[in-house]
């Protein structure tokens, strides 16, 4: 499955970069979201895949069963997801205000209005 996920990660990155290079702020933000999915999945996959065994100790036990999924990348990704959301919200609102001010979706138009 690592191999398949590696391809998915690659595609997410490729799609993210491609979208960020378009002349549309909407697509740029879309690319940003795809890129953060790619990054999260990359950390997740590189941390090692374990099917269906969350890092949770059963009641009474002192530690999770072995093997179980690696908790460290998970906690990294968990905060990354929420922060990704906040950053997305900020860029969306920035775009929104930019559009109201400049009436354009094209980053090149913003350049002349500096």
């Amino acid at each position: 499955m690592e191999t398949v996920l590696a391809i998915v990660v690659g595609c997410l990155y490729a799609a993210g970069i491609y979208m960020m290079l378009r002349r549309s702020l909407f697509k740029l933000i879309l690319g940003l979201v795809l890129l953060s999915h790619g990054a999260n999945l990359l950390i997740f996959t590189v941390g090692g895949l374990t099917r269906g065994r969350p890092p949770i100790a059963p009641p009474g036990a002192t530690q999770p069963p072995t093997p179980s999924a690696d908790p460290l990348p998970q906690s990294l990704i968990l905060t990354a997801i929420v922060i990704g959301f906040a950053v997305l919200a900020f860029s969306l609102v920035l775009f929104h205000r930019g559009y109201q001010t400049f009436g354009s979706d094209d980053p090149d138009d913003l350049k002349v209005s500096e």
Binding site: C11, I17, V46, P55, Q63
Partner: peptide, 28 residues
Amino acid sequence: AIAVGGLMSALVLVGTPENFPPISSFFD
């Protein structure tokens, strides 16, 4: 974009735990 994607795929395949053992046993 495809170059970036290819590079990231390669990184994932190279960076699997077989090559780099995890450090999480402390937390477990």
